[in-house]
Simulated scan of single mutants.
Amino acid sequence: MAVRDTEAARTDGVWKVFEQEAESVQAVRDVSLTIERGEFTALAGPSGSGKTTLLNLIGGLTRPTQGRVWVAGREVSRMSNQELARLRLEEVGFVFQAYNLLPVLTALENAEFPMLLQGVDAEERQARVRGLFARTGMEGLEDRRPGKLSGGQQQRVAVVRAVASRPALVLADEPTANLDSVTSEALLDVMGELNRDLGVTFVFATHDSRVMERSRRVVRMVDGTVRDDEHRS
């Protein structure tokens, strides 16, 4: 199957079945989806709808039981574990609900860590992070460790970390779940600006109405299937 250069990711007939004790749970069922570069898309649905599992399938964090997945033109579903790790490092940025920052590193060191693993030189790493910190209201907080940052500030560091390595797409799993409404709106402003100004592709797994309202595409999931795919201008 030909994959276009304009595609950040694609799934084709993807299933994910989990074996739990004596039963099989079909978390994702026959989902075919294309994410174009530059999209700001929400995978929406209640708990158990399959949205986080689909996000993990796209990001190569879990393998499909059946079907195929591509990221940046490369077929994820047939990669070795080593190839998957490299793909995640080079092509996918992750923003998790729990921030996942390293407590012993400063905000700047956390944000530049994926680029360190990529082999980007120190001057370039710091230039990218400092530029993004200035854009996201984190200027002056570079030397603080996560324990000295608010939840919203920690999530901004996580967003900068995801974006700074210039991946094909950023996958965000419930990024506003632990934030109050004011902080959530501010974070969505930041991600919206990065999407518009830098062309960063964002895909969210969310049940937050604020994220859905901001998204230009909302893919609604129920019981592991796509029930509606709404594109907005």
Results as ranks from 00 to 15, higher is better:
117 L>V: 04
120 V>R: 11
144 R>K: 15
139 E>K: 14
137 G>P: 09
112 E>P: 00
117 L>K: 00
134 A>V: 06
118 Q>I: 00
144 R>Y: 10
111 A>E: 01
121 D>C: 02
131 G>L: 10
122 A>D: 11
126 Q>R: 15
120 V>D: 07
110 N>V: 02
127 A>Y: 03
119 G>S: 03
125 R>Q: 13
147 G>K: 07
117 L>A: 10
135 R>E: 15
132 L>Y: 08
147 G>H: 09
134 A>Q: 15
120 V>S: 06
130 R>A: 10
144 R>P: 03
115 M>T: 03
117 L>P: 00
141 L>R: 15
145 R>C: 01
133 F>S: 10
115 M>A: 04
135 R>Y: 04
125 R>G: 08
142 E>W: 06
145 R>T: 11
144 R>Q: 14
121 D>I: 00
146 P>H: 01
140 G>A: 12
134 A>Y: 09
140 G>N: 12
109 E>D: 14
117 L>N: 02
128 R>A: 14
110 N>H: 05
109 E>A: 13
130 R>S: 12
115 M>C: 03
113 F>M: 15
119 G>V: 04
132 L>P: 02
129 V>Q: 01
109 E>I: 09
140 G>E: 11
118 Q>T: 00
115 M>V: 04
122 A>Y: 05
109 E>G: 07
118 Q>A: 11
135 R>K: 15
122 A>V: 12
125 R>H: 12
112 E>Y: 04
144 R>M: 09
119 G>A: 08
126 Q>S: 09
144 R>H: 14
126 Q>W: 00
128 R>M: 07
146 P>W: 02
129 V>M: 02
118 Q>D: 00
132 L>R: 05
143 D>L: 12
138 M>Q: 09
129 V>A: 03
136 T>F: 03
133 F>G: 09
143 D>H: 14
125 R>P: 07
126 Q>E: 13
147 G>M: 06
127 A>C: 02
123 E>D: 13
113 F>S: 09
114 P>E: 02
137 G>I: 10
139 E>V: 08
127 A>Q: 15
133 F>E: 09
137 G>T: 12
127 A>D: 13
142 E>Y: 05
127 A>S: 15
112 E>D: 10
111 A>P: 00
135 R>I: 07
118 Q>M: 15
120 V>H: 07
143 D>S: 14
137 G>R: 11
142 E>I: 06
140 G>M: 12
146 P>N: 04
131 G>Q: 07
121 D>K: 04
141 L>A: 14
145 R>H: 12
147 G>D: 07
113 F>C: 00
140 G>V: 12
130 R>V: 13
143 D>Y: 08
121 D>E: 14
143 D>P: 00
141 L>G: 02
120 V>K: 11
135 R>H: 12
125 R>S: 10
114 P>W: 05
126 Q>K: 13
146 P>Q: 06
110 N>T: 04
119 G>C: 10
